[in-house]
């Protein structure tokens, strides 16, 4: 009798876990389909070169003085760092902002079909780090870096 109950129990758990797995799969599909244009792989990459490879297919960047970063030298609060980027490179196609010391460096990737080479935002920084900006124009990647000191980190906690 005892043995029979045990069988039933095992059968029951196997069946219910199968149902759970199916439900999870069903729930996940619409979410991933909805964010199809959002480059999930690039945003979850943990290294700068992997982010660039995933977004542009190349991590070859040219250091350029025409990519200008305006940011404080020292930020008191890492959860709100005012940051703006301006470029004089003609026909910028995309701007990518990466905080190299964050666990996921890619902060924002902006495609510019007709807007000018400018973007501003307030960003979160875990600790003192370089911020690297990459501008895509004519199939080439132009890059510039700025170091921002952070007194209190703004990620996790």
């Amino acid at each position: 009798m005892n043995n029979l109950n045990r069988r039933k129990f095992i059968k029951g758990t196997v069946a219910s876990s199968a149902v759970l797995a199916a439900a999870a799969a069903g729930l996940l599909t619409p979410v991933s389909a909805m964010a199809a244009s959002w480059p999930k792989k690039a945003f979850s990459s943990k290294k700068v070169d992997l982010v660039l490879k995933s977004l542009y297919g190349s991590d070859q960047v040219i250091e350029s003085k025409d990519v200008k970063i305006r940011a404080p030298i020292q930020a008191e609060n890492g959860s709100v760092v005012p940051f703006s980027i301006k470029t004089t490179i003609p026909d910028p196609e995309a701007i990518t902002i990466m905080v190299t010391a964050n666990s996921m460096p890619l902060t924002a990737n902006i495609k510019l079909p007709s807007a000018g080479g400018y973007f501003s935002a307030r960003i979160k920084m875990a600790k003192t780090s370089d911020v690297q900006v990459v501008v895509q124009s004519g199939g080439k990647l132009y890059s510039s870096k700025a170091k921002i000191k952070v007194t209190v980190g703004g990620c996790g906690g």
Partner: peptide, 21 residues
């Protein structure tokens, strides 16, 4: 469409974004 921004989790609370046209 003038600009399309893909944002990550490292953009601050109550985002204030600037674009130029």
């Amino acid at each position: 469409l003038a600009a399309e921004a893909n944002l990550g989790i490292a953009v601050s609370e109550d985002p204030l974004l600037g674009f130029r046209l």
